[in-house]
């Protein structure tokens, strides 16, 4: 898998992984958002469970 958007450093600007593949970039962005939001849901479930057990 080649994740580099550049083949040479000459004239490179935005050189981060998948910079030339907007769909993959969006996939990772959505995954990061899902982890962030999902963890808040996990926190709420965990807390409710803990309170109910005490």
């Amino acid at each position: 898998m080649n994740t580099s958007p550049i083949e040479s450093w000459e004239g490179a600007e935005a050189y981060f992984t998948f910079a030339d593949k907007p769909a993959v970039m969006m996939l990772f962005l959505l995954l990061a958002v899902a982890i962030t939001a999902g963890t808040i849901i996990i926190a709420a479930v965990h807390e409710k469970h803990a309170y109910n057990n005490h």
Partner: peptide
């Protein structure tokens, strides 16, 4: 290892 090149959400994941 790839701090210089990753798209930041990749580093987060």
């Amino acid at each position: 290892s790839g701090l210089d090149v990753y798209y930041p959400p990749v580093a987060f994941v």
